[in-house]
Computed example of a mutant assay.
Amino acid sequence: MTSDSFAVVPPVQNEADYLDFMGPMTEYPRLAYSMKAVRKVGDQLAKPIQFGRDITVGHYVDTLEIFSIANSWRDSHFLPMRSVRFSVGHHMRTLRLKGDMASRPKRMASIRRKLRESTTNLDTMDDIGGCRAIMADIKGVRSLLASMRENFPHEIHTREFNYIDEPKPDGYRSHHIVFKYRPKNADTEAFEGRRIELQVRTRLQHSWATAVEAVGLFRGQDLQHGKGEQDWLRLFQLMSAEFALVEQCPVHIGVPDHNDRVRELRDINKRIGATRILEDIQNLTHYPENFVRSTEKSRYYLIQYGGDHSVTIEPYRTLMLGARTLEEIEKKIELRGIDVKAVLVEVDKVEKLVEMYPNYFGDVSLFARKLKSICTEKAAIEYSLAP
């Protein structure tokens, strides 16, 4: 089944709704440095950064300047990121598609890892600003994509990455589109060409991707990038194929057929106790459960995941206030080596925070249920949103 099967009449964006969502354009940070400085800093971020007691004052000042330039470049993606977020959400609402949206600026640690391990440069990185649309089912994914191709205010950059119909070898499945921001007027010309990545996936695909991250966080392994225990990597590869089967999507070449997959999944689960470990992740991840009631008027949340599996959530009224705090925490992570992961996210409602970013809260319940059902001879069924 192709995306063309779900051709729709493209919705027209209402300017008043857009301006109400975005707020004053002048409040969004502009890049305070030259592009030459951004490119130079990208080269420096890819290298190890010295920290500790032996660092000189001059070297410390130079390092702070590196992060200042990198943060200014990241901050200049805030307006384009929110503009893309609004437009995607508008398509979802107009088409009456069930799903949710979230967005986040890329973590500095992730930016540095990508600069080290790929050929990309800081000034050409596609996902410094990222949006995520989690749809109820595969039909919703394809309908949304078809609609955006017909009418979207920003340009699709190069090609799309269809990891749903062409899953990655590790089992990752999602559809990625990179948009280049088109300014609406002279007030937003400074942001022209900023690249924002949109990920569109189903609930089932989301449960897989976030379970990979949650297990990696809990066990201190970078499973997301193929580094860690082979049994876990294989389990996720096989579970991805089972989910693809349920959604009637292609399975990666080389993965065994359904019966052999199920037998191997049961063997792995018995050997490593995967279902028990998934339950431990849920039980041993601690966060204040009353944060939903105390942050009703916020849209932006700074999530910190500590080495002791504790989670803290700080609400912010504006994206910029949260960004300043994030930058200070990231300096401590990079220069002092503190054991914490921090991310600044935007969700429409606080109740959606755990649902959209379950990896930080140890919420692997959907994935765990599917694995358990497979290991007890029950077929996986596609997850759909409750009414």
Rank of each mutant, 00 (worst) to 15 (best):
F361C: 11
G58L: 13
R271E: 13
P169V: 15
F191Y: 14
Y316Q: 08
T376Y: 10
Q50H: 14
M148Y: 13
E351F: 08
M148D: 03
A379K: 08
V262A: 02
D137E: 08
G58T: 08
T56N: 15
Y18Q: 10
K40Q: 14
K47I: 15
L144H: 06
G254R: 05
R116P: 03
V200A: 12
V141A: 12
G220P: 15
M35D: 15
G89Q: 04
R113V: 12
M81Q: 00
D126I: 08
T158V: 11
S110M: 00
R219E: 14
T275L: 11
G216P: 04
S298G: 05
S72Y: 01
T158I: 13
K331A: 10
E327P: 00
D75C: 07
C131V: 12
M356I: 01
I268V: 10
T119Q: 13
T120S: 15
P256L: 12
R142D: 10
G130M: 09
L223C: 00
M101P: 01
K180R: 09
Q237D: 07
V343G: 01
N162F: 00
H77R: 07
D4C: 12
M22H: 07
R263P: 05
M239T: 09
D43W: 06
V354M: 11
K168G: 09
V340I: 01
Y316N: 04
G42P: 03
P358G: 06
K352E: 11
V350E: 12
K98Y: 05
P169D: 15
E247T: 01
F161S: 15
Q224G: 14
R203G: 15
K352I: 06
L64T: 12
S294A: 05
S365E: 07
D348G: 11
K270P: 04
I333R: 01
G337Y: 05
G129W: 09
Y33E: 09
E296L: 15
K349S: 15
A323K: 02
E213S: 11
L245G: 02
V57N: 15
T124V: 11
F86D: 13
I303F: 09
G226Q: 06
I338G: 00
G322F: 08
R369E: 14
K370Y: 04
K341M: 02
T26G: 04
F236E: 03
K352D: 13
F179Y: 15
L233S: 14
D187M: 13
I156W: 12
N14K: 10
R194L: 06
I69L: 02
R159I: 05
D348C: 00
P80V: 03
G362N: 11
C249R: 14
V262C: 11
N259A: 13
E289M: 01
I338E: 07
I313R: 02
Y18G: 00
F361K: 13
L217N: 11
A380N: 10
K40C: 10
E296M: 14
L335V: 03
L233G: 00
D17N: 03
G226A: 08
G130N: 00
N359Q: 01
G89S: 04
M92A: 01
K341L: 04
L371R: 06
R276G: 11
Y28D: 03
P29Y: 08
L64N: 15
V311G: 09
A102G: 11
I196Y: 07
A211F: 02
N359S: 05
M239V: 09
L344G: 05
P315Q: 02
V12K: 05
A186M: 12
R85A: 06
D222E: 11
E242Y: 05
S174V: 03
V311H: 07
